Amino acid sequence: MKLRNRLNTVMALLALGATPAMAVPLTLQATGLPSYMSQGGYQGSFDASFLPKNFAVSSLKFSFLFIDDGDVIPYTTGESVNSAPVTVRQASGSPGSRQAGRTFTDTVTTTVTMPRTGMGEKESVKLSFGGADYSGATTEIKSDDIVPSRTYIESTSVKYVKNNTNVSCLKTQWEQGTANCQQVTTIVQKQYQNRIVTTDYTGEIVLGGSLADDRDLLASLLRDRKLDFSLEVLGDLNFFGATLDIDFMPIEDIVMVPEPASLSLFGIAMLGLGGVRRKRRA
């Protein structure tokens, strides 16, 4: 009888050293949301109805992915701006000819810049779990490009002058190479170009974090076997899914892990039990 009482004491000590089992990882997918979201509010949830009756949560992390749908950017055209005329002189005589060093072309160019400004749609989203809010937006990308469109020649004229001056000379003098007479061909042209300034918003929005420290959310998950959330979307976004990663442990699942002191007591008790049995056999 004394031996049995000792064994009962040992088992009670072992029970005091009980330790929970390892946590079980689980991934839930969000439900109730469309794959394309225009501007407005949305409601969704994570269904956890298959969790055990009683459980503890050691980790609770979420991740949402949205991607810009690639809207067409509208452009507005502003007033054109003309640059001051720029004159470029080039020798244009045929090499080896009598007039080679006295033949030039003056190109007078005015650049007409037509500004176009485009503004894309900025997308953003706010995620709410109860009183916890998380938000993100697409990335702003700016560009400023010059795109030539066409060149228009307004006029072409030929004149004969002396030594890069405005003093006129005769064509025959230029042909004979006398009086330092030069031939100058003047081309007046306009060069048109577009200056395109664009502000776009694009890319992906990733919202993620941990909810393990939010006691209200954990209580809601335990009570309702689901976790509700809401979204406020500005702009247009493609929704690529959301996950909720849970590490949980069923409360009923208990593994007895004795402490070192309990093991010692258990060993002493087993030795005592063996001694009693040998004494009875003798």
Rank of each mutant, 00 (worst) to 15 (best):
Pro52Lys: 07
Thr87Trp: 04
Arg195Gly: 03
Asp213Gly: 05
Gly208Glu: 10
Val112Ile: 15
Gln99Trp: 03
Gly241Arg: 14
Thr19Trp: 14
Ala179Met: 07
Ser59Phe: 12
Gly241Asn: 12
Leu3Tyr: 12
Thr186Ile: 00
Leu26Gly: 05
Ala261Met: 09
Arg150His: 11
Leu273Asp: 11
Lys162Ala: 14
Gln176Pro: 01
Phe239Asn: 00
Pro95Cys: 06
Ser49Val: 00
Ser210Tyr: 06
Arg6Asp: 08
Thr202Gly: 14
Pro85Ile: 03
Glu232Met: 14
Met11Val: 13
Leu222Ser: 15
Thr105Asn: 01
Thr178Pro: 00
Ile146Arg: 15
Pro74Tyr: 08
Gln182Leu: 10
Gly32Pro: 12
Glu140Gln: 13
Phe248Ala: 01
Leu244Lys: 14
Ser49Ala: 00
Val112Leu: 08
Gln176Ala: 02
Leu14Ala: 06
Arg150Gln: 11
Ser157Glu: 12
Val108His: 04
Ser230His: 10
Lys53Asp: 00
Gly131Glu: 13
Arg150Gly: 07
Leu265Tyr: 14
Pro25Ala: 14
Cys169His: 10
Ser97Leu: 06
Gly130Lys: 06
Cys169Glu: 08
Arg4Asn: 03
Pro25Ile: 12
Thr138Arg: 10
Val24His: 14
Asp213Lys: 06
Gly267Asp: 15
Thr9Leu: 15
Gly274Thr: 03
Val112Asn: 09
Thr9Met: 14
Ile254Val: 09
Gly96Pro: 07
Asp144Ser: 15
Ala15Pro: 00
Gln183Val: 02
Leu3Pro: 07
Lys159Ala: 09
Gly93Lys: 02
Leu13Met: 06
Ser149Lys: 05
Glu121Ala: 11
Ala242Trp: 04
Gly208Thr: 03
Gly208Pro: 03
Asp69Ser: 08
Val255Ala: 13
Thr109Gln: 10
Lys122Val: 02
Ile268Asn: 14
Ala91Tyr: 11
Met256Cys: 09
Gly118Phe: 06
Ser58Gln: 01
Ala261Arg: 05
Asn238Arg: 03
Leu26Trp: 13
Val158Gln: 03
Ser143Gly: 06
Ser264Cys: 11
Ser94Cys: 10
Pro250Cys: 05
Ala48Pro: 02
Gly208Cys: 07
